[in-house]
């Protein structure tokens, strides 16, 4: 996966819990344009470990000067959001992936119903830019705890004009999903991003009302083929290699100067398949090549995308 080196140009506390980061290209050049609903994966080098968190891009897709992300402080998370809040400062360098879109607007929709809960508003901010550009019909329904804690309400009012509907829990306001989704014209699509009970409620309501599956969308992030660090021993070459968290096993093997065959580097072609001799914790298979039974047997691994769940792996290489 090729990455882009960026620099933090600005940090703004939007609410006590949400920070907005502006990222620019390290060398001042333009960033790739993207489509509304895209996310990037930010790599953070904390001491001793690496965090890789996906964040929605919330700026205008046509703005290639800077990317904008918002991070909500999550005390219970593995620590990526805490790191973003406490350690990332203006001028700091970060690595990000190219934008990926797993939450794209349907180009054939006649009307778009966008439903956001809390920080789940972020992907819709770039989507609204796209919708406005093509003149599409849409409604944005934005639910949050209280006006004081809600991010970007003023910006959204300006952007959306009459299309924005806000719901503050503190004032007893709720989205009536049944009423909302039972009175939409044919060709409508619904999109939801927010806390999981809200996502589940929207999906269930739409399905119960007979909305076709293709007209219902919820945000998904790509899972990068990285994870915890581990050691891999190459039996034939008789060396042991440390696979860092942010590197694929294939990359680590190549970096150690061992020749390994590969082609697609995306877990589909089967070219890099290696025989597993020993594993202490099983295999995290991320490929689309091995069959389910082959995956269960743990005798083979695709080092371009897969890892071990344990600390150590022995391969016949």
């Amino acid at each position: 996966m090729s990455t882009i080196n960026v620099k933090v140009a600005a940090i703004e506390a939007v609410t006590p819990l949400i920070k907005h980061f502006t990222l620019v290209h390290e060398d001042g050049s333009e960033l790739p344009s993207f489509s509304g609903g895209s996310h990037i994966v930010v790599t953070m080098d904390a001491e001793g470990r690496t965090y890789r968190n996906p964040y929605s891009l919330m700026g205008s897709p046509t703005d290639t000067q800077a990317y904008h992300i918002s991070v909500r402080r999550q005390e219970s998370s593995r620590g990526g959001s805490l790191f973003m809040h406490e350690h990332v400062h203006v001028g700091m360098r970060l690595k990000i992936t190219h934008p990926v879109n797993l939450f794209s607007l349907s180009k054939l929709a006649h009307k778009h119903i966008l439903i956001a809960g809390g920080i789940g508003i972020t992907p819709f901010m770039s989507q609204i830019e796209d919708l406005k550009r093509v003149g599409a019909d849409y409604e944005l329904h934005y639910a949050f705890r209280a006006y004081e804690q809600a991010a970007f309400v003023n910006e959204l009012e300006e952007m959306c004009e009459g299309h924005l509907h806000c719901y503050a829990d503190s004032q007893g306001e709720r989205i009536d999903l049944n009423a909302l989704l039972s009175q939409q014209p044919l060709g409508s699509h619904v999109y939801v991003c927010g806390p999981s009970p809200m996502v589940v409620a929207v999906l269930e309501t739409a399905r119960n009302l007979g909305w076709p599956e293709n007209n219902i969308h919820n945000e998904e992030f790509s899972s990068p083929p990285v994870g915890e660090p581990f050691k891999v021993q190459l039996a034939k070459s008789d060396i042991e290699i440390q696979v860092p968290a942010e590197m694929s096993m294939l990359e680590a093997i190549e970096a150690a100067g061992v020749k390994a065959d590969s082609l697609c580097r995306g877990g589909v072609c089967g070219r890099c398949e290696l025989t597993v001799l020993e594993t202490d914790g099983g295999i995290e298979h991320h490929d689309h090549y091995l069959s389910d039974s082959e995956k269960v047997s743990c005798r083979s691994i695709m080092p371009c995308v897969s890892r071990t769940k344990g600390k150590r792996l022995v391969l016949d290489l």
Binding site: L181, S182, Q183, Q184, P185, L186, S188, L209, G210, W211, N215
Partner: peptide
């Protein structure tokens, strides 16, 4: 019929 129909029509 479709002109006045709403989502949920099968």
């Amino acid at each position: 019929e479709l002109r006045d129909a709403q989502m949920g029509l099968r």
